[in-house]
Design a protein around this nucleic acid. Structure first.
Lengths: 344, 344
DNA sequence: CTGAAAGCGCTAACAT
DNA sequence: ATGTTAGCGCTTTCAG
């Protein structure tokens, strides 16, 4: 396809382009550097030579000399969580738009973190974004030590060198509590995971605080090991076994709510929403599915991703700039599990 | 944190390590190169110097001189499809294990492909893996032109320079057809998407061929625009409006089956599995959820990812090696929608 | 086994 | 505006 001169199939370099265009390497470089001064005529020649050769700037070489790779590490766990996957998708696209390239580094709770650090450092990433449930504080330390800007999504604050983006957990918990109270619930149950992650813990705390402030009762906390469908199923069993009577349930996230609903229906004669109202959190796509139709507090993964990217680029522009903890608003979406009309 | 000498916070280079260890840069390089010959004594010195300095090999510089970045482009669409997300997760982890780094390049059907090509080329990726539903043939062309090994997952074969990994669509379609026949279905319906993607089209063709071979009838093909929950919902409406009677349904994937089931229940007085049996394909996690409990033909994303990575590394080791189309086996999982016992 | 030197592809002063 | 020169951090012949 491409014109090759000496070695067969060699990737063309700026030297080749310079030669063909009859200019210097610098001219080529400048042509491909935004805001550099090149005479229109030479630029023309360079562009055309580049095109016939199929030349592309080698960003790695560029990065080497500019000391900036524009690679951004994306540290992710729990990819098979549709909300997480969407967030990652938005992050990757948003980063790409700004000329960054996302390096995907999946990790699992309990996994060795050191390889992540190696990667970040080996590849000289320009920044790192973490969106995983188990936050390796170690990563923050290393990033600080090596001056790599770090953005944490839905994680606790750890220090000055890192930026935080989180959903408004206080409001998330409060909205759910207020709604349950408004629709007349008196004895409240909670569905949660045993080892709560950061934002989940905060949602729950905010929910409980609001419930108490409203003079209502927390009748029980039904738990599952993990915050997913299976965890929700476990919680349903715990609920059924407990024999505790409730008329309202707060479920710390939608995934657990899905499992809880399915297995509540199997194990209990009571009905949702007739006997018990249920509110969950996140408003993932599945929450709107007809079999579930869950009232939920929506968080928008796009806003979260955009905020994270904004925080990162700001840090890059001005490393000294203040890094306020960005809080993404949430909204209550009323659906069938609280008796609101089914929008289908 | 780290010992810094001249500039504050400078990232240590192999020069720094060499200096501290009292050896040459080459010695440092060799210490960090697998299978290079270094005296145990010097290696010792280098390692310790590196540790106190916090030195890490700069893979980009290494890549520049070795002409190999070990970056692998992961071209992905439809990330908010749990099966896709899991595949990407497996790919990323598997690649990481082998010392490759996945560059995540999300794309959407109809989007501009050229930026993907720029990225692959700008970052000198060592290889590319594509797992998106709309396959940009253009990418294959460019990869071939620039000698970048390419692995296509569930895509049609395009040429000699690319490797293919696909699930066994022929068996997938056949198993479903045979099962429906075995359990006594006579009039068969299909739920599919209007513009079928590659493997989906193959599944469907295999299914239809088997049904015909068994002397049965395809009574109707009920379609939705997209192969997801919403598409399944549309198909359910199309089915209800058609008034066509069937006693068995093949759904080209689980996602559509979820939407179909939910809205079939809303729109029809008939029941699954009592009146109509349903089989879908993929066996995603949601298929096993209690509200759906779908009989499905399982494909294992881990096997697919592993095979893709294997194909890529083989290509890298021996660019001339034959590239057989790898076919990943599938198995039928019997559940409630065909009246098999609920395993819950 | 080790060091010196050249070079990977590019950019960034510095002259012109 | 353009070309020259000197690196960016690393690997790799090539001598020794």
């Amino acid at each position: 396809m491409s014109n090759k001169d000496e070695r067969p199939n060699r990737v063309p370099t700026s030297d080749d382009v310079a030669l063909l265009a009859g200019v210097s390497r610098s001219a080529v470089s400048r042509t491909f550097t935004a805001g550099a001064s090149v005479a229109p005529a030479t630029r023309e020649k360079v562009i055309s030579a580049a095109k016939t050769l199929g030349y592309r700037v080698n960003f790695l070489a560029r990065g080497l000399s500019q000391q900036r790779t524009n690679l951004v590490a994306l540290i992710v766990s729990d990819m098979d969580n549709s909300l997480r996957a969407r967030t990652v998708d938005f992050l990757a696209r948003g980063l790409a738009t700004l000329g960054f390239r996302p390096l995907l580094l999946p990790t699992e709770p309990g996994e060795d973190v050191s390889y992540l650090i190696d990667m970040m450092l080996n590849y000289n990433v320009t920044g790192t974004i973490v969106t995983s449930d188990t936050p390796p504080a170690e990563i923050a330390q290393e990033c600080a030590a090596y001056g790599v800007p770090l953005v944490l999504i839905n994680k606790p604050e750890v220090g000055t060198h890192v930026s935080n983006v989180s959903i408004d957990t206080a409001t998330a918990g409060r909205l759910a509590a207020e709604e349950l109270a408004t629709i007349g619930c008196k004895r409240i149950g909670i569905v949660s995971q045993r080892r709560a992650s950061h934002t989940i813990g905060q949602r729950k705390a905010a929910f409980i605080a609001t419930i108490r402030a409203l003079g209502l009762d927390i009748a029980g906390d039904f738990q599952g090991a993990v915050q997913n469908y299976g965890g929700g199923a476990e919680a349903a069993e715990a609920f059924a076994e407990s024999g505790i009577a409730v008329d309202g349930i707060y479920c710390v996230n939608d995934f657990m709510a899905l499992g809880f609903l399915d297995h509540f229906r199997r194990l209990s004669d009571l009905r949702i929403p007739e006997d018990i109202k249920l509110i969950a959190c996140d408003d993932i796509a599945e929450a709107a599915w007809r079999s579930y139709d869950i009232t939920s507090v929506r968080q928008d993964p796009k806003s979260v991703a955009d905020a994270a990217i904004t925080a990162l680029s700001r840090r890059l522009e001005d490393p000294e700039a203040a890094q306020p903890h960005v809080v993404i608003p949430v909204t209550l979406i009323r659906r069938g599990t609280t008796g609101a009309s089914d929008p289908t």
